[in-house]
Design a binder for these strands. Sequence first.
DNA 1: ACGCCACTACTACCGCGGTAGTCCCACCGA
DNA 2: TCGGTGGGACTACCGCGGTAGTAGTGGCGT
Lengths: 133, 133
Amino acid sequence: MSDPTTLGDLQLAIMRVLWARGEASASEVHAALLAERGLAPTTIATMLRKMEDKGVVRHRAEGRQFVYRPAVEERAVRRGMVGELVERLFLGDPAALVNHLLSDGQIDPDELEALKELIAGRERRAQGGSGRG
Amino acid sequence: MSDPTTLGDLQLAIMRVLWARGEASASEVHAALLAERGLAPTTIATMLRKMEDKGVVRHRAEGRQFVYRPAVEERAVRRGMVGELVERLFLGDPAALVNHLLSDGQIDPDELEALKELIAGRERRAQGGSGRG
DNA sequence: ACGCCACTACTACCGCGGTAGTCCCACCGA
DNA sequence: TCGGTGGGACTACCGCGGTAGTAGTGGCGT
C-alpha cells in the first residue's frame, strides 16, 4: 500500500504507452518513446525493471522478450499524484487547486462552459445518492 | 529562468512559513516546523541554504542570525508546480485536471457551488478583455 | 554447430531532496 | 580576557529518478 503512485516523468511516459496499448515489450516502449525522448533502450529496460520493483508494472516472458503490463490504473495514479500535490501545495483542499487554475488564467475561456456543465452534472449525481465506489 | 519552481515537501513547508511571515530567521522557521516535523535545526538551516542556492529564498544578516525572505511568490510556485503536473499527467490540459478532480469525487459537494460562481466570475472577466495581471 | 544478435541483468553514476553531525567563529557575559 | 553558547558552514549520506554501459545468455541464421 503506502504510496505506490508517485511516478517520475519518464515513468509516466512509459505508463502512458502501457496504458494505451494494454501491454508492450521493452523494445516497443522504447520505440514508442524514441521520438520524444531519444533514450537508450537499456534506459527504458532499466526503468521498466525499477518500475516492476515498485509494483507499478508487471511482466510476462514471451520468447526472450518481456512483455510489460500496467499494474496500476491511470486513474489511481492521477488520484495519487494530484492528491499529493493538493496536500503539498493546497493544504489538502482540492477546491483551492481548482480555484488556482481558474484565477490564474491557465484555463481556456471556452473550456469554462464545459467545466460548468461538469460541475452541474456532478451536483446532480451528488444529490442522487451515494458517492463513488 | 529555467524552472525555479519545483520545490520538495520540506521546501514547501519552509516557504509557507516564509510567505506567512514575510521573513524569518532559520531558528524561527525551525521553531515553526518543529511541531509538525520535528527536524533538527541544522536540517532547516541546510535546506534554507540549498534553497538560497536555487534562488527561491534570500537572506540578510541580522546580528549573527540570517533572516530569510521568500524570493519567489507563492502564486508563481503554485503555477509552476501545477503546470508541471498538468504537463506530466494531463498532457498540458488544465481542464482535464479539473475534470479529474470533479469526476473523482475529491471535491466536497458543497464546494461545487463556490466553484461554479468562480467560473462564472472568470467568464465575465474573460469577456471584459485583457488577461490576468 | 557456431557465432552473432537481441534482450535482459547487473552495476555505476549524476543530481537533488532530505536529514543531520561536526566544526568553527563571533559575540556576550563573567 | 577567556570561556561558553548559539548559529552558520561544510560535509556526509540515503533514497530515488534518470541514464546508460557492459556483461551474460539464449536463440536463430548460416
